[in-house]
Design a protein around this nucleic acid. Structure first.
Length: 619
DNA sequence: GTAGGGTTAG
């Protein structure tokens, strides 16, 4: 009682408890101030209650349940209060609650304002509420916020999410004042749907107001569509314009390096991050681990991983996946066990990686064990991806019946990737009948994926069924499906060199081809027989027109031998899978030239040393 | 009180 009298005695008495609300940091403090305010008789005061609710709904330590309780006691909540509570739900991933509140607000004849719409639209977006989103769009105009930048950007964002790019573009075109968010939203919108050229046009027109976010949206657009060189070019432009390199750009560029296998460039960015104190969060750490793994440096990846102060589940997953890719299944399992000892809860991705580690290393028993372990011990139900890994595991090992049985037993329908895993196995083990059925099915499911046609055609060619090979090729042509051309990349002295089979445009082309011939001569005397018998590779993944011995990886190796010192490791990345012939050749080259060669193909790593490959020919 | 960018398998 006495404290209230004291407050009432001074003229600033009413504002001070409200001011105190602004400085609270815990719910306990807030509740104290709240009860004081009620004692002052302000329980129906929207200004006072609004501040209480704001803290509960929006601050880090806020309690949404308390916000709801207070909300229920307010006789006539105003727009501000609705906004704050709707935002609270949105931030807590409860968009449906926000939408319900929005319509309640309209029923109460409260006019939404410029703060309401971004929230309501965001809620529709997160709840996939297309129809309601369109209605809110109409309200934006009806209530006079048609030219409010925040509302317009939120509209664009929503339409991008709903895949109505035309609608997003219409909003963008009508905007009188655009800001960085407008550019960014549209650029990434186009990029997500694969319209990179359109994204670039928007980017170029953002000239006057570009910050690192806009730059990154475009760089990421290139990276996501595998146009790594263009990402690098844009990055150079960005640095020339002295735009700061922040953690997002660093992450995108690391992915570009990963895509190309450009280790030196990746290391440079890693160094830059450390030197310039760029915040190393768990996502960025994962990107760095991924870069080292996919650029062939497991040791560096491990060193970095071990040096991290905090290792989130995605970092563990990435490291386990890296080991899997390098054929180190046993080590991957050990790392998983360490993860459990460190009490890091695995998620579904963890088990995808553990199972794929088993598949790549032929660990059938272990794969079976972890497949049931994930559900029994961690309560994680297997998804399609996990079934895909198991099909891959059995399939590679030649246990096609077992793989087929598993597909039949799946509680969900199999998709193209599950069938694809089995199809791949039919290819390895030459099961024509099953492969033919699956091939047709997978092509129907994914008519634009050239790889599917190639596997089926290869299967036919293995069986000598040339007419069928021809008809698959005709089908591809008729549908306008083109094989992605095979290329290999080798990075020397920070320069990325790219080779395409049979291509002669490289400045050192003459020397390179001579070196290939020399290489072949040398390995022939070591027992190499070029795998050209029959027309087995009639429709290989690599361009058919170029002779086998000028496949892109051979050109890259020749280039590497010409331009490095004895003993240096040659690291090559290939966008497709390495073919049998090149695999055999690499083994012998590693022996004859006494060179370690690391080849990353579409699926995994091959470490060639002294005539052997780390995959033990199991791939 | 409000909006935008990066990672993890096959």
């Amino acid at each position: 009682m006495s404290s209230i009298q004291l407050i009432q005695a001074t003229p600033i008495s009413l504002s001070s408890p409200l001011q105190a609300l602004e400085s609270c940091s815990t719910m306990a403090e807030l509740k104290q101030h709240h009860s004081q305010i009620i004692k002052l008789g302000l329980s129906a005061d929207n200004n006072a209650m609004g501040r209480v609710i704001k803290f509960c709904a929006l601050s880090k330590n806020g309690n949404m349940g308390y916000a709801e309780k207070v909300f229920d006691t307010i006789p006539k909540p105003d727009t501000f209060i609705y906004n704050v509570i709707m935002n609270g739900y949105l931030q807590r991933q409860l968009p449906r609650y926000s939408i319900v509140l929005y319509s309640q607000m309209l029923q109460d004849f409260l006019a939404p304002n410029n703060f309401t719409f971004p929230c309501a639209l965001g809620a529709c977006c997160n709840d996939n509420a297309v129809e309601e989103g369109k209605q809110v769009h109409a309200h934006v105009f009806k209530f006079g916020f048609g030219s409010d930048g925040f509302s317009q950007n939120s509209l664009m964002h929503m339409y991008v999410k709903f895949e109505s790019l035309e609608e997003a573009r219409r909003v963008f075109d009508k905007m009188v004042k655009r800001n960085v968010v407008s550019w960014t939203t549209l650029i990434s919108g186009y990029a997500q749907r694969g319209y990179i050229d359109e994204a670039l046009k928007i980017f170029e027109s953002s000239m006057t107001q570009r910050n690192s976010v806009v730059w990154n949206a475009m760089i990421a657009a290139y990276v996501q569509s595998n146009r790594f060189h263009e990402a690098f070019a844009l990055f150079d432009r960005m640095r020339a314009e002295k735009v700061v390199l922040d953690k997002y750009v660093a992450a995108s560029m690391l992915s570009a390096c990963t895509g190309l296998g450009a280790l030196e460039q990746g290391k440079w960015i890693h160094c830059y991050i450390e030197k310039n104190g760029i915040e190393l969060d768990s996502k960025l750490a994962t990107t760095i681990i991924d870069m080292y793994c996919k650029c062939g440096c497991l040791e560096e990846a491990f060193e970095f991983f071990n040096g991290l102060d905090y290792r989130g589940v995605s970092s563990w997953n990435c490291m386990i996946g890296g080991l899997a890719m390098h054929g180190k299944g046993e080590v991957a399992i050990e790392l998983f066990q360490e993860m459990e000892r460190k009490m890091v809860a695995p998620d579904n991705v963890t088990f995808v990686n553990v199972l794929s580690a088993c598949a790549h290393s032929g660990l059938i028993k272990e794969g079976r064990y972890y497949f049931s372990y994930m559900t029994e011990v961690h309560g994680i139900e297997p998804r399609r991806e996990h079934y895909g890994c198991m099909v891959d595991l059995f399939g590679r090992a030649g246990m096609l019946e077992e793989a087929k049985k598993l597909i039949d037993e799946m509680p969900m329908s199999a998709d193209e990737s599950v069938f694809g895993a089995l199809l791949g196995a039919c290819g390895i083990h030459g099961n024509i009948e099953l492969g033919e059925q699956l091939g047709m099915r997978v092509i129907d499911l994914e008519p634009k994926n050239s790889g599917r046609y190639v596997i089926l055609a290869n299967l036919y060619s293995k069986a000598g069924r040339w007419e069928d090979v021809a008809s698959v090729r005709k089908l591809m042509n008729d549908r306008g499906v083109k094989k992605s051309p095979g290329f290999s990349v080798i990075e020397l002295g920070g320069v990325v060199n790219e080779f395409i089979a049979g291509e002669i445009t490289h400045p050192q082309a003459k020397d390179i081809y001579a070196k290939v011939d020399e290489m072949l001569e040398c390995i022939r005397s070591a027992g190499y027989v070029s795998n050209t018998d029959g027309v087995l590779h009639d429709l290989d993944e690599e361009e058919r027109e170029s002779p086998l011995h000028y496949h892109s990886e051979k050109l890259a190796i020749a280039f590497g031998l010409l331009n490095t010192n004895p003993g240096e490791i040659l690291r090559i990345s290939k966008n497709l899978r390495i073919c049998r012939d090149c695999h055999q050749a690499c083994k012998l080259i590693s022996k004859v030239y006494d060179r370690e060669i690391v080849v990353r193909d579409r699926n995994r790593f091959h470490h060639f040393r002294n005539g052997e490959c780390s995959c033990r020919d199991y791939w």
